[in-house]
Nucleic acid binder design. Structure first.
Lengths: 237, 237
DNA sequence: GTATTTGAAATCATATACGATCTCGCGGAG
DNA sequence: CTCCGCGAGATCGTATATGATTTCAAATAC
């Protein structure tokens, strides 16, 4: 019997909802403050509200969405302190991830990473922030993909997801930081090649993130003193 | 109108289920491998399966429960590698948490912590593992409660929760480790009092956890070479 | 004109119902 | 005796329905 019962994808509807919403947040269709209405999303996806609710709860656990009882969910609005917390945590886990991965990184990996970094350098004069950020992610992914501790890798990914919510604040917008960043990348590669002590590498990687954070904070402070995004109101008939 | 509609507690049913299950895991009513059946738990709590499901999903996200589609949930069985991952992550976040908290720790905090540690020392001769573990938690809680970064504090708590699932492997069972541990505690307190550099403190705190991990692993390896807990079967009529 | 009340719409929260899927024991074939 | 297929029961997954709660704006009082 080749009768497909409607579960051909093998993907549960809650999983589907989860990925759909996450994608919308990633590509900025749903910007911070956007109200996520269970029924509306369910209708759009052709599922009921229950699986959508579950998906939103998962996104809440990951810090991408805030959820208030009897009120609803909205894409997380990360204000400055929250941003600082995330970046600080990220600096720590990225540092450890880099140090733990190092012994497993091959010469080929280094070469790949260096190629990516070269491409970033090529962008320095004529900056394409979106592509630059993408390359930056790719660079660090190469460094991390060998991390032997999946929990730490997971924490890194969670941090990145949260960062993605505010991708417009991407560091590549901060003048001068991009140039510093690629230099630090090369430094990291050399430390790995030299088989530097784990702690040296960890602190270098941590400082790399911390430097980005400080630069971004200083920049934001001087340009957008007090930006409070409006929360979208409830729809009325 | 003093008509209470049945929501007097202000606790949603999914939240209630979450806390109830978590408590059962903590006090070892539900041991690793225990099957969590949505309907059965719901009936016991007087709620339907939907909120129970949501609660279980949250516990899954925290790593306390595993959930398989169309099969069900059971309390996570943490085998050695998984245990190592958790401990390693915990050592990192506890290290950072300690270092970040230090500047905010008062003399009174130190005194409290030292009292707790004294009580632990008193237990050294006549070891009560359960109480010892409790005191250990209290000691570190005092050190962490001033942590300015709630994300990192949250990671510490998650790690502790996971450790609690396998509390029988508590470090206080490892001969000699308890004595080492309280000595390290005193050392940490002195580092804080001396206002040591953040990195010094961080690494000391990290080593404290790492030492526990290593001792426990060595001990387990020599005593329980291959312990595979049985998964409880589905109930039949 | 401003503050307060009030009611209807929107939305969340969960119980119930039902279909889908997995598990496990039983019985027959080899 | 062992292996395989099958079917009943258990359980999950989600649609639907309904109650509870919040929000918003218009109407009212001052």
């Amino acid at each position: 019997m080749a009768e497909v019962t409607g579960q051909a994808t093998g993907l549960s509807k809650s999983q589907l909802s989860y990925q759909w919403i996450k994608a919308r947040i990633s590509d900025s269709t749903f910007t911070p403050g956007y109200r996520l209405v269970l029924g509306a999303i369910g209708k759009e996806l052709g599922v009921s509200a229950v699986p959508v609710r579950e998906a939103i709860r998962r996104l809440e656990a990951e810090g991408l969405v805030t959820f208030e009882r009897n009120v609803g969910a909205q894409v997380a609005m990360i204000e400055e302190t929250e941003y600082l917390y995330t970046m600080q945590t990220l600096s720590v886990v990225e540092g450890v991830a880099t140090a733990l991965s190092a012994p497993f990184i091959t010469g080929a990996d280094i070469a790949r990473a260096r190629t990516v970094n070269q491409e970033m350098i090529a962008f320095l004069e004529d900056l394409n922030p979106h592509r630059f950020t993408e390359l930056n992610l790719e660079f660090h992914s190469i460094l991390f993909e060998n991390c032997p501790n999946p929990h730490i890798l997971d924490l890194v990914h969670r941090g990145w997801n949260r960062m993605q919510v505010l991708r417009d604040s991407s560091f590549s917008f901060v003048p001068g930081r991009a140039r510093e960043s690629v230099a630090e990348h090369e430094n990291l590669l050399q430390l790995i090649e030299a088989e530097s002590p784990a702690l040296t590498l960890e602190l270098a990687a941590r400082a790399h993130r911390t430097g980005t954070m400080d630069a971004l904070l200083a920049y934001q402070k001087s340009h957008h003193p007090h930006q409070t995004p409006e929360s979208s109101p409830r729809k009325r008939s």
